[in-house]
């Protein structure tokens, strides 16, 4: 495997409520190589989203560390997240949403560079003619593409996707999966994606990390050796999908009231 762009080691997280304590992750470790697409799967409530939120800086781990190359993940190194519900700012146009991150003091990107990036990203997601539209004027798939562009605008070291396509219909979903593969090809992006859909995972991932039931630990890693474009009708594809589905299937765990994933 190439040099890891991100090393996750021994991540532990427990959510503490007033009356109950809910362990979410118990020592999760794995490496992500540059330009790799990793899907995280696991039974409901196993802490998949929590792990992603910790890497994205929206939650803090109790124990463990996240390192990018040799540096700890911090202010300078960026992980950008894409949520299931696009989370676009409804009062900003498509263009303004995309440049949102670049306008904040943490980025300090000059104006000419901002304009160049937004033009590139608009054409990358095929929405140049919608630059001035407001999010509510777009379809669900288009909104999610804008959300992807907004995350890519800051040139993140890693793109974190939390079930990004689960709210979309099957056709839009496949279209966006192809788009993600194309973006990886063009921008050399590293992607970590949570999904509950084995077919989606096998369709786009290089490796699939399976977390155990709560509290989550890495229960297995499945490598997908198939070349792109992959066909869900291919017998090898079906075999890997069945294997993944079988390993993910666990008893339904009782979800804690204070969990996130």
């Amino acid at each position: 495997m190439a040099e890891p762009v991100l090393s996750i080691s021994g991540i532990e997280k427990t959510f503490r409520g007033e009356s109950e304590s809910c362990p979410a992750l118990s020592g999760v470790s794995f490496d992500i190589a540059a330009e790799e697409i990793i899907c995280i799967m696991g039974p409901s409530g196993c802490g998949k989203s929590t792990l992603l939120r910790i890497i994205g800086g929206l939650e803090h781990e109790d124990k463990g560390s996240i390192h990018t190359r040799a540096e700890p993940l911090g202010e300078g190194v960026s992980a950008a997240m894409i949520f299931q519900d696009h989370a676009l700012f409804p009062w900003l146009s498509v263009e303004e949403n995309i440049i949102y991150g670049l306008r904040l003091s943490a980025q300090k990107v000059p104006d000419t560079e901002v304009h160049r990036r937004v033009d590139d990203l608009l054409s990358l997601i095929h929405l140049t003619s919608f630059a001035r539209s407001l999010p509510h004027e777009l379809s669900g798939g288009m909104k999610q593409r804008v959300s992807v562009a907004r995350a890519l605008a800051i040139r993140p070291s890693i793109l974190l996707m939390d079930e990004p396509f689960s709210a979309l219909d099957i056709f839009t979903r496949r279209e966006l999966e192809d788009e993600i593969l194309r973006i990886r090809q063009e921008l050399k992006t590293t992607i970590l994606m949570v999904t509950h859909n084995p077919e989606e995972a096998v369709y786009i991932a290089d490796r699939i990390i399976i977390l155990s039931e709560r509290p989550g630990v890495v229960a297995g890693i499945v490598t997908v050796p198939l070349p792109h474009p992959r066909s869900p009708a291919d017998p090898d594809f079906i075999r890997i999908r069945e294997e993944v589905a079988g390993r993910v299937k666990g008893k339904n765990v009782v979800r804690c009231g204070i969990q996130h994933g």
Binding site: G57, L58, A80, M81, F83, F89, Y100, G101, A106, I154
Partner: peptide
């Protein structure tokens, strides 16, 4: 959270 993700 989006703002926090971009270190606002």
């Amino acid at each position: 959270e989006v703002a926090e993700m971009f270190h606002a």
